[in-house]
Amino acid sequence: MKIKVLGSAAGGGFPQWNCNCGNCTLARRTAGQPAVSAHAASPDAANPTVHARTQSSLIVGEEGSADWVLINASPDILTQIRATPELQPARGRRDSGIAAVLLMDAQIDHVTGLLMLRESSRPLNIHATAPVLADLRTGLPLLTVLSHYCGTVEHTLALDGQPFAIAPLKHVRFQALALSSKAPPYSPHRHDPHPGDNIGLLITDTRSGRRVFYAPGLGEIDPAVAQAMRSADVLMLDGTFWDEDEMIRLELSSKPARSMGHLPQSGAGGMLERLGDYADKRRILIHINNSNPVLRHDSPEHAQLRAHGIELAYDGMEIVP
């Protein structure tokens, strides 16, 4: 099994188009520089302190196969495809390495890239929970729009904890786990959370038995999430905010982190503290907001990540569990 990060930023990307916070301003000055891992050497003149990132998504595939499962279709999908040669195997006049799409939720930054795939020569295979598919027929009717183009084949994800396969991958199994969250603002049940509005994924290589737990939107580590984390070898978790009041303090929003469904990294009960129980695993933060100081490689917060042995995802990062 092989996983490749297409995008590692939260909604809006980094730098965000209309944001002039310190991080975004610095990112514009260093535009065009490649991303590096959280364990890169200390920045110098040849290694700027921040690197641009597109909105979060992954691809999952198998060694020797030209087919991939796309997990979330971000608004940056076309940029991500151009940067990922694996997604254009060129087996025919019209071709793509994207065999199927699995959606974690119905949030704009995870689904609107579907519209950019409308020229597909075959219907898009879309795997999502019942609440997500319902939201994509009602509040944000992307499935209706796509029916006038390539069309879709919808596969409803069960939340029964049972492993399932997505063709044509032969040796990868997925398990969907309901997370505590809210539906998107445009959902008819925005204020009535349903199981499956947001999921985590346990991804298993059946040959090696190695597992990855992926949860880019995680507001609470409840017992079921903790069990999934214990069973995994690699954790790819919500890295949106450093502080609970980060957006308020920077005058970017009036909402604290947890109210937006994201567990902050710092503070009592925060992600860094909770990840201390999983020091035997590879731990990677993904879905990083433009306001988060960990984006600066020279920041004290970034140094804390390194001290805890926690990595920061970047666009193009490859993971072989």
Rank of each mutant, 00 (worst) to 15 (best):
P256D: 09
D245A: 15
N198W: 05
D222C: 14
V225S: 11
P188M: 09
G196L: 08
V225T: 06
L177A: 13
P185S: 10
A224N: 12
S231E: 05
G200W: 03
H194W: 10
R249N: 13
R211P: 00
L177H: 08
S180L: 14
P188N: 06
T204M: 05
R210V: 00
I248G: 03
Y186E: 10
I203R: 01
M247I: 13
P195V: 09
D233C: 05
A215L: 04
A226V: 04
Q175V: 13
A176Y: 02
L252R: 07
Y186H: 12
W242N: 01
Y214W: 11
D192P: 09
D243L: 13
K182E: 11
D243T: 13
A226Q: 10
D245I: 10
P188L: 07
W242G: 06
S208I: 00
D238N: 09
K255T: 15
R211I: 03
Y186D: 13
L179H: 07
M236A: 06
S187E: 05
D245S: 11
L202K: 01
L202P: 00
D222V: 03
G200T: 04
F213S: 00
A178G: 10
P195F: 08
S231A: 14
Y214C: 05
G200E: 01
D233G: 12
N198H: 12
P184F: 13
Y214T: 04
S254Q: 15
A224G: 07
S180Y: 03
F213A: 00
D205W: 06
S180A: 15
E251C: 08
S253K: 10
T204E: 03
K182G: 15
D245N: 14
M247W: 07
G239K: 04
K255V: 13
M236C: 00
E220G: 08
L201I: 06
P256A: 10
N198P: 08
G219N: 06
S187T: 03
L252V: 02
A228K: 08
R249D: 07
A224F: 09
H189R: 11
M229W: 01
T240N: 08
T204K: 05
L252W: 11
I248L: 14
S231K: 10
E251P: 05
Q175E: 09
E220Y: 11
V234L: 03
H194I: 15
R190P: 02
L179Q: 00
S231Q: 13
D245C: 11
R249C: 13
E251V: 14
A178Q: 01
D222K: 14
H194V: 15
L218Y: 04
L177N: 07
L201N: 03
V234A: 03
